[in-house]
Simulated assay, not measured.
Amino acid sequence: MKIAVYGQKLEKNNITYLNQFLLYVFNNSIEIYIEKDFFKILLSFKEFRNFNIPVFSNYKELKGVDLMFTFGGDGTILSAIPLIRDSGIPIVGVNTGNLGFLATFSKDVFLKEIDKIFQKKLYIIPRSLLYLETSIKNLNKFFNFALNEIVVFRNETVSMINIDVHIDDEFLTSYWSDGLIISTPTGSTGYSLSCGGPIISPDNKNFVLTPISPHNLFSRPLIISDCKKLHLKVHSRVKYYSLSMDTRLLSLKKENELFISKAPFYIYLFQERKNTYFKTLREKLLWGVDQRN
């Protein structure tokens, strides 16, 4: 078996867990590769300085990998997506961060279930993505897929922007707001939720459009089928507007129109049987904390 490991940082209290994981890998003769920058972080700790592990730096070097292990929170998984792309490599998200909607394995559970993970006896959950095209081909090497959301918002101005939205070539409305979030069901518990958007379980085939601080009492989040295609045109007092896709950010000229649709592939996440999506919602959003319930 061949695995890859990715992370963005390492806290001292997580060294023991990662060390136990690496020893398990070596003892079971599992081929392992670690992302280059994360390996540099590991080498800053004496516990890992004697490890001689090959590194990778881009998606082309992950050919033949069976599993990707991420150590961190949901942001770490989102940052790993450009490395995985359409390879179909399942992600095992070990939660050493805060929220953990995507990284559902706690450190203790992860080590207890490690045999089942390598034997692929746990659930593999597919998650849909958004795909972005632009009218001006200036994305260069920007990875134009998003697992959580695509966000359009104002740039270098305190004034609101206008965003014309068409769905399947039919005009929907013009949002006068700070911006607009186009979210997948996976991303519905993220930025969209904080702006008043609905929570959508990941087995639904939908997108949600959530305006950011709209100057219109009748602007509300809208759920649409993920087979629909969106066309966005931005009007602003300044030359540029901002575009974010998960953890990636860039500025585009307002003449640059956006075309958004469902991606032709899925990202696959490992999940233990008892750790269901609704259980995660209940725990992470503190549902039922009121003792009167």
Rank of each mutant, 00 (worst) to 15 (best):
E133S: 12
S79F: 09
F38V: 00
P54C: 05
L258E: 01
A146C: 13
S106M: 02
T184E: 08
I81Q: 01
E11C: 13
D74M: 08
F71I: 10
L222I: 15
F218C: 09
A4V: 03
N58F: 07
S201D: 14
V151Q: 02
P211R: 10
E272C: 06
V94A: 09
K2E: 04
F110C: 03
S225R: 04
E283V: 11
D203K: 11
V109H: 10
K228L: 05
L281T: 08
F145I: 02
Q8M: 12
V234F: 04
Y241Q: 02
G7P: 07
E283D: 03
N162H: 11
T280M: 05
I260Y: 10
L139Y: 00
N98F: 14
K9E: 11
I212A: 04
R49D: 06
N155S: 14
P211W: 04
T96P: 03
G288E: 05
D246T: 15
G100W: 06
F270G: 07
L102I: 15
I117C: 07
G72Q: 09
I163H: 08
S159Y: 08
Q271S: 15
E113T: 02
L217E: 13
I15N: 11
N13E: 09
L193T: 02
L193I: 02
N140P: 09
N14I: 02
F39H: 06
H215I: 08
E133L: 11
N275E: 13
T104G: 15
P90H: 08
Y277M: 03
L78N: 09
T134G: 08
L193V: 06
E255F: 07
K274D: 11
K120I: 10
K137S: 10
G88H: 01
D115W: 04
P198V: 00
P90E: 13
